[in-house]
Amino acid sequence: MSVIVTGGAGFIGSHLVDALVSQGRQVHILDNLSTGHLRNVNPGAIFHHGDLLDGGLHQVFAEAKPEFVYHHAAQVDVQASLAAPQQDAQTNIAGTLAVLEACRLFGVRKIIYASSAAVYGSPLYLPVDEGHAIRPLSFYGISKYTPELYLASYAALYGLDFTILRYANVYGDRQSSQGEGGVVSQFVGKLLLGERPVIYGDGEQTRDFIYVKDIVGANLAAMTRGSRGVYNIGTNRQTSVNELLMEMCAISGEPFDPRYGPAREGDVLHSRLSNAAAMNELNWQPAYSLHSGLEATIAYYRAQREQRVLR
Rank of each mutant, 00 (worst) to 15 (best):
residue 109 R to P: 02
residue 110 K to E: 00
residue 110 K to N: 02
residue 111 I to K: 07
residue 111 I to Y: 00
residue 111 I to H: 00
residue 112 I to E: 08
residue 112 I to V: 15
residue 113 Y to P: 01
residue 114 A to S: 13
residue 115 S to V: 07
residue 115 S to K: 11
residue 115 S to R: 12
residue 115 S to M: 11
residue 115 S to F: 03
residue 116 S to R: 00
residue 117 A to V: 09
residue 118 A to F: 02
residue 119 V to Q: 06
residue 120 Y to Q: 03
residue 121 G to W: 08
residue 121 G to A: 07
residue 122 S to N: 15
residue 122 S to F: 10
residue 122 S to R: 14
residue 123 P to L: 13
residue 123 P to G: 10
residue 123 P to V: 12
residue 123 P to I: 10
residue 123 P to H: 11
residue 123 P to R: 07
residue 124 L to Y: 04
residue 125 Y to S: 14
residue 126 L to T: 13
residue 127 P to V: 13
residue 127 P to S: 11
residue 127 P to N: 09
residue 127 P to T: 13
residue 127 P to Q: 12
residue 128 V to Y: 00
residue 128 V to F: 00
residue 129 D to K: 09
residue 129 D to W: 03
residue 129 D to G: 08
residue 130 E to S: 03
residue 131 G to W: 01
residue 133 A to E: 15
residue 133 A to C: 10
residue 134 I to R: 09
residue 134 I to G: 05
residue 134 I to M: 07
residue 135 R to M: 11
residue 135 R to G: 01
residue 135 R to T: 13
residue 136 P to K: 12
residue 138 S to N: 08
residue 138 S to Q: 11
residue 138 S to M: 13
residue 140 Y to S: 04
residue 140 Y to A: 08
residue 141 G to H: 07
residue 142 I to V: 15
residue 143 S to N: 14
residue 144 K to R: 15
residue 145 Y to I: 03
residue 145 Y to S: 06
residue 146 T to C: 10
residue 147 P to Q: 09
residue 147 P to H: 04
residue 148 E to K: 02
residue 149 L to P: 00
residue 149 L to S: 03
residue 151 L to W: 07
residue 154 Y to K: 08
residue 154 Y to P: 05
residue 155 A to V: 06
residue 156 A to V: 07
residue 156 A to F: 04
residue 156 A to D: 12
residue 156 A to T: 06
residue 156 A to I: 05
residue 157 L to T: 10
residue 157 L to A: 12
residue 158 Y to N: 08
residue 158 Y to T: 06
residue 158 Y to D: 15
residue 159 G to D: 03
residue 159 G to L: 04
residue 160 L to N: 01
residue 161 D to Y: 05
residue 161 D to L: 13
residue 162 F to H: 07
residue 162 F to V: 09
residue 163 T to L: 03
residue 163 T to Y: 03
residue 164 I to P: 05
residue 164 I to V: 15
residue 165 L to P: 01
residue 165 L to E: 01
residue 166 R to C: 05
residue 166 R to D: 05
residue 167 Y to S: 06
residue 168 A to W: 06
residue 168 A to L: 04
residue 169 N to S: 13
residue 169 N to C: 11
residue 170 V to G: 10
residue 170 V to D: 04
residue 171 Y to E: 04
residue 172 G to K: 09
residue 174 R to W: 09
residue 174 R to K: 15
residue 175 Q to P: 09
